[in-house]
């Protein structure tokens, strides 16, 4: 614990910026009903209001308050992305560590299956499967988690294999330690840093992926507020924008606001990940 504080103290500015961004999003997402001035999907004004009080970021095509939808969107988009990442990570890491540690036929079968899954571009695969399953939230989470777990599998398997070549593993095996002990005590502590970093990267990927699907109208379905979907709904406004007045210029920003919200969180997570990776590579030296 003391160690962690020391590392936090020495964290570079970029890592702090990243952590602040992530914390900001977390607070918004958790306390969404407290911060949002209006309900998530209620029509509260005229269509396409400009940015004036009481709708500080205007209203959308159905007269819903954009600011409120942005705030709820944090909860929905980030929440679903987090759940998906957690599932993908559990699946991938468990199978990856097992494949590396057990080896043999288990490793061969698992690795070949992953090779085939990864041979198809994930977006294409997801579209194919969502055609069949339809676009429910559960289907979305499961499909993306399974597809994404392949990358976690590859990484955790590679990391574990690197660790398993170490002599201390041989020592433990000579002692007759069981599989569970090997993974928990010898492999995991040494794999922690790259796996944490990978969690961050996977989250970014999943988050962007779900946003992309929603943008295509195939992800999180309305009326649930979701950033990708908000970009889609407000996309055509951009052609009405002109820079003659401040009010009309905001039309151009309509799709950029939710898109920017996505971009900012991804940047924040990436900054933190970079720092974690840097720390873990520094420890090796």
């Amino acid at each position: 614990m003391h160690n962690l504080f020391l590392q936090l103290r020495d964290a570079p500015v970029s890592a702090w910026v990243g952590m602040l961004i992530v914390a900001f999003y977390a607070i918004i997402a958790i306390g969404a009903p407290l911060f949002a001035p209006y309900a998530e999907s209620a029509s509260v004004g005229a269509q396409y209001q400009p940015w004036t009080a009481p709708h500080y970021l205007g209203t959308d095509i159905l007269g819903r308050d954009v600011l409120s939808r942005l705030i709820y969107g944090a909860r929905n988009t980030v929440g679903i992305a987090l759940a998906t990442t957690a599932l993908a990570f559990t699946l991938g890491a468990v199978f990856g560590l097992l494949a590396a540690t057990i080896g043999g036929w288990f490793d061969v079968i698992a690795s070949r299956a992953v090779d085939v899954l990864m041979a198809i571009p994930p977006l294409i695969f997801a579209l194919l499967i969502l055609t069949i399953t339809g676009t429910s939230v559960v289907a979305l989470i499961v499909v993306i988690a399974v597809l994404d777990s392949t990358r976690v599998f590859r990484l955790s398997r590679a990391v574990a294999q690197g660790i398993l070549t170490m002599d201390y593993i041989e020592v433990a095996r000579m002692r007759g330690e069981g599989l569970f002990w090997l993974i928990r005590k010898e492999v995991l502590p040494n794999a922690a840093a790259p796996l944490i970093a990978e969690f961050g990267l996977r989250f970014c990927f999943v988050f962007l992926f779900i946003s992309a699907l929603s943008f295509l109208g195939l992800g999180i379905q309305p009326p649930t507020a979701d950033w990708g979907g908000m970009v889609r709904e407000s996309a055509k406004l951009i052609s009405f924008a002109n820079f003659s007045t401040w009010q009309t210029a905001t039309f151009g920003l309509a799709p950029l606001l939710p898109a920017g919200a996505i971009a900012l969180l991804t940047i924040g997570v990436n900054l933190v990940v970079d720092w974690v990776l840097h720390m873990s590579s520094g420890l090796k030296e």
Partner: peptide, 21 residues
């Protein structure tokens, strides 16, 4: 960092806003 963080449509709309609109 920007390239891996920005969704494709974000870049697209920024380009549209600047060079088209």
């Amino acid at each position: 960092l920007a390239a891996i963080s920005f969704p494709e449509f974000f870049i697209a709309y920024i380009l549209i806003l600047i060079f088209s609109v």
